[in-house]
Amino acid sequence: MNKTILEIKQLSTSFKTDRGFLKAVDGVSFSLQEGEILGVVGESGCGKSVTMQSVMRLYDESRKSVDYGGEILLENTNLFSLTSEKMQEIRGRDISMIFQDALSALDPVFTVGNQIEEMLKIHTDLNPPERKAKAIELLKLVGINSPEKRVDQYPHEFSGGMRQRIMIAIALSCHPKLLIADEPTTALDVTIQAQIIDLLLELNKKLSMSIILITHDMSVIAQVCHRVIVMYLGQIVEEAEVCDLFDHPTHPYTKGLIRSIPNIANERPEELFVIKGTVPLLSEVPQGCRFAPRCSYAKDICFATMPDLKQIDKAHNVRCWLVEEGGTDHAE
């Protein structure tokens, strides 16, 4: 479990807009070990999806509307140094992605078997009967009953949860080293969500597959991940092992996120905790610490200068001035 599969170094992604280039991701660095499940959590606009889509280089580079910086090392190969053709080989074969809305991610005019086999056709040398057999095997792996019959059905004949499983099957077809799951359970019902989470955990164990799980749902993070990074406005503000993050959330934003969820296991509070203010636009990113305007603990230095990520404990990093000065004020 010690082999590093993915290493991101100072990744930055900027998009061309009417107001010049806006940096959606600003200096993000992290690494992923084999067999590890990493959670990326943050709200809309924090850049978590953009980060992962940058890892896959999914943005259209031909129109020069996106600009990347930094390095993405997939087992020591810098993905930014590859040509588009080479990158296309990597996608699907070495890194796979599954999305939130399984219905629109699947092509409605092809059977699910066809869609899985298409992946195999692109990346492997199997012949048609072998591909079909593999497709059936994959459907079984993701828990779809009667796979021999269902492999010839169309996406609309499946329910939401099943379609998500099919997407996972497609993503796994070439045994990628890394699976990126972008909000895979957000659109699903609670019981189906639990099933998909179980499936991901099982696949992680069985195939030793590394997973990056993007979500805004802290409960899912708590159930699934080994390690977590918390993002805000394009930067990592806290990074820790999952138990450490929930037991000792240090960055005020992390604390706020955890506290604003109504916890089914706890006593009912009078009012839910609310992080004051709203996420600013990317074009109006504040100087200094980006969270300062909404932070109840903000000091002068917070507004003036951007804090760096500092290690406060084993594998626990935080981007906050208050940590430098000996810890946040725990008296609420």
Partner: peptide, 25 residues
């Protein structure tokens, strides 16, 4: 009961087995 067991509390120490319902609606 199955519904409530499937709700994940935001607490990594409480990773529990949920009641698995067979089949689909």
């Amino acid at each position: 009961r199955a519904l409530l067991s499937a709700v994940a509390p935001p607490n990594p120490h409480l990773r529990k087995k949920h009641i698995a319902l067979k089949g689909e609606m």
